[in-house]
């Protein structure tokens, strides 16, 4: 045996889901605390993961701590299952815990996401794990944690409202389009992670458990099932979500978040669902319905 061979870890040399059981217990305790104080950022002893910070280390630690052998995992980035980061994280879990994976939102028990909430409504019993780059919504106003901690503790959120005021004063509207701050359970101001504001209403009163992991900043927070999520706004400039004039070019959806795709170098573009599972499912259903109709009319003829 060469001297290096002893160092090479086989994939199954790692504990189930990479983290050791003690670490997982520590993270679960933080998760329980986070669920008990909705929207409150719980500091946790985040570990270094074999994934770069900012690439979902918080999310994978949370997922690693809640996932069990019987779970079915779905991983998305930008709403899609086949984007590089989603593929890499899904492969990581297939390697270190050998769980079943799926692209179907409905079939998944745990969904780890970056930047989107799936279009298909979640159900009780499902867990949605968000990857969070910057958990502190007040960071842009006050860079000091010693101060932001007090602002949260005393619910001093006036300065945050000032940033909305500035938007309206300068642009005539609130100009935050993603990572749109919201007050959870009427108490804590929370960053929903960089999901588009389009997705904020989906967080509200959601039957699923929503967990947020920020690896680099070592914070965990949560929105328990059926919890109020109020996006900040003004009475005369109420919160509103993005809308599109057209519909998805592939499935015709008029209710989903659309990505813009540039189709040639003359600037032609089309809009398609950002949620690939949602779009594919609708296309398949439409095709099946059409086939059924064709079959019926064929028989009639």
């Amino acid at each position: 045996m060469s001297p290096t061979a002893a160092l090479v870890h086989k994939d199954d040399g790692y504990n189930f889901a990479y983290l050791d059981e003690q670490t997982k217990r520590m993270i679960r305790r933080s998760l329980l605390k986070a669920l008990s104080i909705p929207g409150y950022q719980v500091p946790f002893g985040g570990r270094e993961m074999p994934l770069a910070y900012g690439w979902g280390t918080g999310g994978i630690q949370v997922t690693a701590s809640v996932i069990g052998p019987d779970d079915v995992l779905k991983v998305i980035d930008q709403g899609a299952d086949d984007t590089t980061n989603a593929v890499s994280i899904r492969r990581f879990f297939q390697t270190v815990c050998d769980v079943a994976v799926t692209e179907s939102t409905a079939e998944a028990t745990v969904v780890q996401t970056r930047h989107r909430v799936p279009e298909t409504p979640l159900k009780e019993g499902q867990v949605l794990v968000y990857q969070v780059p910057q958990p502190e919504p007040l960071k842009k106003i006050e860079p000091r944690e010693t101060e932001t901690r007090k602002m949260h503790a005393y619910a001093e959120y006036g300065a945050m409202q000032v940033t909305l005021y500035e938007d309206v004063a300068h642009f005539g509207r609130i100009a935050k389009t993603y990572d749109y701050p919201a007050v959870i359970n009427g108490r804590h101001l929370m960053s929903p992670s960089p999901i588009p504001k389009f997705d904020n209403p989906k967080m509200e009163m959601n039957p699923a458990i929503q967990l947020f992991g920020a690896g680099r900043e070592k914070r965990i927070y949560a929105v328990p099932p059926y919890t109020s999520v109020r996006s900040l706004d003004f009475d005369d400039h109420p919160f509103e979500v993005q809308t599109w004039k057209g519909s998805c070019a592939l499935c015709g959806s008029t209710t989903s978040y659309l990505d813009e795709v540039i189709t040639d170098d003359r600037g032609s573009r089309m809009f398609v669902c950002s949620d690939t599972d949602f779009c594919n499912t609708r296309q398949a259903e439409a095709a099946a319905a059409k086939a059924a109709v064709d079959k019926v009319s064929g028989e009639e003829a």
């Binding site: 001093e156 959120y157 006036g158 300065a159 409202q161 000032v162 005021y165 500035e166 309206v168 004063a169 300068h170 706004d233 003004f234 009475d235 005369d236 400039h237």
Partner: peptide, 23 residues
């Protein structure tokens, strides 16, 4: 922060939520 925002901060901190009134 703009002059208006500077003056509006205190009212907003104690719950003012109507942009037009604050302004």
């Amino acid at each position: 922060v703009s002059a208006g925002g500077n003056i509006g901060e205190r009212p907003m901190a104690i719950g003012a939520r109507h942009y037009g009134d604050i302004r």
